[in-house]
């Protein structure tokens, strides 16, 4: 019980003091997971829309794979990314291991299936309703995909938030490809693991509380933006 009280006190102090180490770690977490989300959106939205709209051989199998990939274990993705980026791996030349870029790539691999699979479902549902009309209006494939994505923007915003949540909360991938290097690749989750190992549970919990608060804040902002948007257009 007193541990929990300590943890909240620690979290509060960390936030109020704007502890520079904490600020750095939070900024890196946001930057890595934010960038991973942007990349995942750039890949997953068009890909999901294409699978949602097109009919081709093997589509069902592909959808099963996409849905299953939503549950990829982060540590597995981290290991694969590590093997690729290792100096003795195929992409070793790029010297990306233990950099924020490597963490972004690993998280992109984690988040893209979520964005793609949920986008596919959303676009397919919307296509049932709208696609014939769009084709009748003379829309080409890219225009239909774009329009359906825009029509699904509120659902897709939630999809992107889910992806962001998965990225910022995972530790398995970033600790392997990032290495949890202080001031370089240390993010919220790897810092929590570190403090847990050091036995400083109040600090670890405090960081955890900051992470949760951050997630709440990001989602509240997104919700606010959505509500305003919904009122203006819809």
């Amino acid at each position: 019980m007193s541990d929990l009280v300590d943890a909240f006190a620690t979290a509060f102090r960390l936030i109020v003091d704007l502890d520079p180490d904490l600020v750095e770690i939070v900024a890196l977490s946001l930057r890595v997971s934010g960038a991973a989300l942007v990349l995942a959106a750039l890949l997953g939205l068009p890909f999901g829309a294409a699978v949602g709209l097109l009919r081709f051989r093997g589509r069902r199998a592909l959808i099963v794979l996409m849905n299953a990939a939503m549950g990829l274990p982060p540590v597995f993705v981290g290991l694969v990314a590590y093997m690729l980026l290792s100096r003795s791996g195929p992409l070793g030349l790029l010297e990306l291991l233990y950099t924020p870029t490597a963490m972004i790539l690993a998280q992109t691999a984690l988040v893209t299936p979520i964005v793609a699979a949920l986008t596919r479902q959303a676009v397919e549902d919307l296509a049932d309703e709208l696609d014939e009309q769009l084709r009748s209006l003379g829309a080409g494939f890219a225009q239909r995909a774009g329009t359906l994505l825009y029509e699904g923007r509120f659902t897709l915003a939630t999809t992107l938030l889910a992806g962001f949540g998965r990225a910022i909360a995972e530790v398995g991938a970033v600790i392997i490809v990032g290495g949890n290097i202080a001031h370089l690749t240390r993010v919220m989750t790897t810092a929590i693991v570190l403090e847990t190992n050091r036995g400083d549970l109040p600090l670890a919990l405090g960081l955890g509380i900051v992470l949760v608060s951050l997630a709440v804040l990001v989602n509240a902002c997104a919700q606010g933006v959505q509500e305003v948007a919904r009122r203006v257009e819809s």
Partner: peptide, 20 residues
């Protein structure tokens, strides 16, 4: 949505911690 994406994009391209 565009605002949110813009914000994220900004975060994404902000420079890495300098390792001079």
């Amino acid at each position: 949505m565009p605002a949110l994406l813009g914000l994220l994009l900004l975060l994404a391209v902000s420079p890495a911690p300098a390792s001079a």
